[in-house]
Design a protein around this nucleic acid. Sequence first.
DNA 1: CTGACTGCAAAATCTTTGCAAAGAC
DNA 2: GTCTTTGCAAAGATTTTGCAGTCAG
Lengths: 156, 156
Amino acid sequence: MIAYSLLLKKFKILLKDNALKFTKQRELILKFLYENSGHHTPEEIYILLKKSYPDITIGIATVYRTLTLLEESDIVSSISFGVQGKKYEIGLKKHHDHLICTSCGKIIEFFDETIERQQEKIAKTFNFKMTGHTMKIVGICEACQKNKHQQTEEKL
Amino acid sequence: MIAYSLLLKKFKILLKDNALKFTKQRELILKFLYENSGHHTPEEIYILLKKSYPDITIGIATVYRTLTLLEESDIVSSISFGVQGKKYEIGLKKHHDHLICTSCGKIIEFFDETIERQQEKIAKTFNFKMTGHTMKIVGICEACQKNKHQQTEEKL
DNA sequence: CTGACTGCAAAATCTTTGCAAAGAC
DNA sequence: GTCTTTGCAAAGATTTTGCAGTCAG
């Protein structure tokens, strides 16, 4: 995993190259995602930042704007949950796909060489210039299969 | 492909089994999806039904409610576009995945045995009880690669 | 200084809900 | 008749936008 200082440098260069400014808010959002690996909603990030740094102000709009910027710059990636919005995670890790438990909402990451290769083949078959892909396997995780009584109470 | 009369029968049985009622609105939505293969937004369905059948009334809420019902019953399936909502298609075809063009929005369906098998393997590895999966490959379709000037005007 | 960034509140999207009237069985 | 379904409009949820003040460079 890349060190935070390097990531920060990369981010600053990116901002400079696009005539954008380095602000406390942007840094905090980046730092939050770096320190809290996993998937986070914009609101989650907003609430937790407000709590962690009561001395600085931040608005939900800034969180959305920054996440969009970070995503366009390939620093974070997002995973969509239909109407329930998106979750963001730092995207410096190796590419991976997701297993999602519909009972508890847990997200497990995996990487599979066979699938990666096959996707490229398929894109080629359709003369598609592939720019990305997402794959989600949904189901019930091991823990939830054991706690059967919980499965009906919640729904993702 | 299943005949419409059979599909309708299946739908009626499903309604009866759940003490639900067969209404003109529900039938029209099912029929629309049957006759218009491909992916449709709830609003699209609503607008087109109103236009096609000026003598019956239908509300957008009913479209949403019916689509939810049809999806839960595995008669239609949906594909999510993040904040931009969902699109629905009749789900009687063989399972398939999607290639999505980010330039023109075109959706191409494909089925790949290797990927299907590999997904089952992955689920097994994590002791996941797989209930479904979605895979989207995004990129630029063949036609849009040729019409490069159009690519920057639109965005999915 | 200048132009980008921010928070706020308002607007925009997409979807769901409450309710009284209408309809299925 | 009874209980579900419907359309409507209002409410929700999530995200975006307009704007005036603030801040980075």
